[in-house]
Nucleic acid binder design. Structure first.
Lengths: 197, 197, 197, 197
DNA sequence: AATGAATGAGGATTCATTCAT
DNA sequence: AATGAATGAATCCTCATTCAT
């Protein structure tokens, strides 16, 4: 009804979704702009109406997905008073999101690790927001007397994020013949024991 | 004595060292073969007498460093009976090696994460040897009654490696105005608590 | 009127003509893509919008010239009933085309003889069409009772084509201080005598 | 008895034979010096004690084979008084030599056609000796009253050589499921008819 | 004479990006 | 806004050749 062409603002998410699929399938370096454009059903040049360059697609894909996730995460965490519940929720959701979207998992765990300054810098702000949420939760837990106050919240964040990240990466490399979220319970147990008073 | 041409044999380590420095300074993609050759004091073509292609340099650099490290690590671990001491030693050494060689740290924590199949596959065997050492140590600790036997050794390995790795990566990204090894004690403490009975 | 960028469509013949001139002047191996592009007034990369690789330029140059020649040749031959007239026309035209376009002659007689599989295979279909025309004409002449039916048409074709080809190649190597077509009459006389009843 | 190494002067023919085999198997451009050296059982550098460069190998291979053939050919021709017998012998032998040595045939009919000035110029003197033999024979035939004196001996030579050459090349390209020499009789018949009075 | 490790020039090709339409 | 033909920079790798041994 709306005509054969998409209306214009609709193209941004279309391109981002296309990029996610193409990056997941071919890797960043082997994902030519022309492939992404074809997958999105637009012309090569159209990509550049929405993105400055190829790196920005990866960065904005990250922002798009993680940015909105962080908003909803913050909302959810507000509902929970206990820092232990909050942390548990964070770990659970992190793994669940990746498990639900294998393309996203592949892009986040592998392709986003490009040692390209522009990409590293681009995702840093959002990533640090996420880090901050974890650190804040840890601090809350320390204030609530659940977590050991002698431990640096920043170090704990690294441990938590590093653990989740490695579990997720292993899963991406595996044949995915096991559930990622099934690892959440044990992972949380170890973390809690590790940082509790 | 010194002819215009270097004598053969000892070019391999020279090239590997040169590659480490150049990769650390410029990143893998911006490290042209000609740059590495110049740094090593050899001709471009000479590189290809020792390596099939650019990717192999990175892989062999990893093998070279980690391979020999694993050998000495195994020797050292034999000296220690207590799995807790062993694990402690592993974490300590891991961080120490990276701290002592910032170029190596940069290459390992950033450049080696290339989502290039050839590189991923190339480093996998050595990396898995290292993983195995950690898992074996964990299992030993479980047998010795120190670590919780209900936890999967593989999961624990992921937590341990993931934590170390994230701590190291953060350090590389930082201005390195703090000591990496100084984090070892707290890190080990958290891990031990997390996995103890 | 003329923008800075050429409009599309008519670049193919421009590139083919440029390639013919550059190949004739420098030989295939010494004709870098950049030379051809410069001669054609396009960018290096533009060549690859029209050709898969350098070899294909040579093949398509052959197809382009010979393909259309074969079409017109077939038309002309239809006008002639007598196989002797036809054969005479074939020889005449063959030499005339080369003489009229020395660049083409050089490319056909020398550069196209590259012992490169891709080139050999690429020109084979067209070349065999030409061979077929000669053989058909010979057969017709045998049916018309002009040519000796005991001789293999295929062998006669080899003799005819081989003779023309050698005459042409000699001319290309020479200073071209004699007319190529001037040899046609004697050549045809020898051939006719050779294959007549 | 003579030791494991060949005595020195023996290496020239060994290298030439190796080159012939390697060129025939891989083509000139894909026949790296190292391949030829390996096939000959010598070091790469040794090749350059006998040949100035790669092109010269091809040229000297030609000289080696054709030079000695021309000597023996001249001897044989002296035995024959009749120009027709002589010409017949030339054609026969030409085809026979190629049929007996498929590697040689491949190198002569394909690889030697390199449009490389150094090669073209290198083989020219020997090739022209051969051409001269044919032309001399034709002239003799004209003097003996067998061949039409109104035809240019040079043109006849081109027809004769071109025909043989095309027959030979076709055979090399074919699966060689037919005898090359079996074509000699018909070929000679056509030629004789073509140039007779 | 023989070796073979070392040299280094050279170029086809890709693909992110532009811009006339 | 959308197109997609055109651009052209940028580099890995090969391999003929050299020369210290």
């Amino acid at each position: 009804m709306a005509g054969t062409r998409q209306r214009n603002k609709d193209k941004l998410p279309v391109i981002i979704d296309a990029a996610k699929a193409v990056f997941a399938r071919n890797g960043f370096y082997n994902s030519q702009i022309s492939k992404i454009a074809k997958q999105a059903g637009v012309a090569d040049g159209t990509i550049y109406l929405y993105f400055r360059n190829k790196e920005e697609i990866l960065v904005r894909l990250f922002e798009h997905q993680v940015g909105s996730y962080i908003l909803s995460l913050k909302e959810q965490l507000k509902q929970l008073d206990d820092a232990r519940q909050r942390l548990s929720y964070i770990v659970d959701q992190h793994l669940q999101i990746l498990e639900e979207d294998p393309d996203l998992a592949r892009v986040f765990q592998l392709e986003l690790r490009q040692p390209i300054a522009e990409i590293r810098k681009g995702i840093a702000p959002i990533l640090h927001q996420y880090f901050q949420i974890i650190e804040d939760t840890v601090c809350l837990g320390q204030q609530q007397g659940y977590f050991d106050s002698e431990l640096s919240a920043k170090l704990i964040r690294k441990i938590i994020f590093g653990s989740i990240d490695e579990v997720a990466t292993s899963w991406v490399f595996s044949q995915k013949n096991y559930s990622l979220t099934s690892q959440a319970a044990q992972l949380i147990r170890v973390i809690f024991r590790g940082i509790s008073k």
